[in-house]
C-alpha cells in the first residue's frame, strides 16, 4: 500500500519534486488571494448587522481554520515519524510549526480587532479564543524545542512527542473552557432563525480560503526544502547541489560587477 509513496520518501526526490511544484503553488496562491482579497474588501456586500467590520471575516476565518489544520497535519507527521521512523515527516513537521504559529497569531489578532467593535471587548476568555491561545503556546513550545536541540533528528523526535501530547490537550482545553465560561452557550444565546450566508458573500470567502490554503502550502514547501537540506547536509547530492548553486551565485555576482 505504501509502495507508491516510496519514491517520495527519498529526500532527494522530494526536494526536486517540491522545487518543481513550488512556482505553480506560488502563482496559484497569488491569483486566488488577489481575487479573493479585492473582492472581499471592495465588492462583497456589508453585513446587515456588523456593517463593514464583517470584512475581517475573510482573513480571520481562513487563518483560524488553517491554524488548526496545520497543527493537525503536524500531529500526523509526528505520528508517522514515530511509528514508521520516517525522517521526512520530521522535516515536514518542523516546516509547519512556524507557519502554524503565524497563522494562529493572525487568527487571534484579527479576532481581537473584530471582537472589539462587535462584542465590546478585545478579548473574551471563551472556549474558542482560549483554545486558540493555547494552540499558539503549543506552537511556540514546539518551535522552542526544535531550536533547543543541536541535532535536528532529536529535535524532531522531541517536538513530535510534545505535538502528540498537545493534540490530546487541545480538545480538553476547548471543552474545559466551554464549561467554565459559557458565553458561547450554543443554541441558547445565539440569535434565533437560521439564514445562511448569502451567496455573494460566500464566493469571495471561497477564493480567500483557497488562496490562504495555497499560500500556506507554498510557505511550508519553501521551509520543507530548507529542512531537507539541513538534515541531509552530508549527502553527496546536497554537496553537488550546494556547490553548483554557489558557483552560479559567484558567476552572477561577477556578471553584475561587469
Amino acid at each position: 500500500m505504501w509502495k507508491w509513496l516510496h519514491p517520495y520518501a527519498n529526500p532527494e526526490v522530494s526536494y526536486h519534486f517540491t522545487g518543481k511544484i513550488l512556482p505553480w503553488l506560488g502563482a496559484l496562491a497569488t491569483l486566488f488571494l488577489s481575487i479573493g482579497i479585492i473582492w472581499a474588501l471592495a465588492f462583497a456586500p456589508a453585513d446587515y448587522q456588523q456593517g463593514d467590520s464583517f470584512r475581517i471575516f475573510y482573513v480571520h476565518v481562513p487563518a483560524a481554520s488553517l491554524s488548526m489544520g496545520i497543527y493537525f497535519g503536524m500531529a500526523i507527521a509526528a505520528f508517522t515519524s514515530m511509528v514508521w521512523q520516517f525522517k521526512l515527516a520530521d522535516a515536514s513537521a518542523a516546516a509547519m510549526a512556524p507557519v502554524g504559529a503565524i497563522f494562529t497569531a493572525i487568527a487571534l489578532i484579527t479576532g481581537a480587532a473584530w471582537g472589539k467593535p462587535m462584542w465590546g471587548t478585545w478579548w473574551i476568555w471563551d472556549a474558542r479564543l482560549t483554545s486558540e491561545l493555547i494552540l499558539l503556546f503549543l506552537y511556540l513550545g514546539v518551535i522552542a524545542l526544535h531550536n533547543a536541540f543541536e541535532d535536528k533528528n532529536l529535535a524532531g523526535k522531541a517536538a513530535g512527542i510534545l505535538t502528540l501530547v498537545g493534540v490530546i490537550n487541545l480538545p480538553i482545553i476547548k471543552y474545559s473552557v466551554e464549561w467554565w465560561n459559557t458565553l458561547h452557550q450554543g443554541s441558547t444565546v445565539s440569535k434565533l432563525g437560521k439564514p445562511s450566508m448569502s451567496i455573494d458573500m460566500l464566493w469571495p470567502f471561497v477564493f480567500c480560503f483557497i488562496g490562504f490554503a495555497l499560500l500556506v502550502a507554498t510557505i511550508i514547501c519553501i521551509r520543507f526544502r530548507s529542512e531537507i537540506l539541513t538534515r541531509n547536509s552530508i549527502r553527496p547530492w546536497v554537496r553537488t547541489l550546494v556547490s553548483e548553486h554557489l558557483s552560479k551565485h559567484i558567476a552572477q555576482e561577477k556578471n553584475n560587477a561587469i
Binding site: I134, F137, L138, L140, G141, A144, L145, A148, L162, V165, G166, N169, I172, I173, S176, V177, W179, W180
Partner: peptide
Amino acid sequence: KGGVLLSLLVLPLYIPVLIFATS
C-alpha cells in the same frame, strides 16, 4: 538551559486541571 523552556512546555498542559479544579 531547559528551565524557561520547561515552563513554556508544561504550563499550557496544566490549564485544564486549573480550570476544572477552580470551577
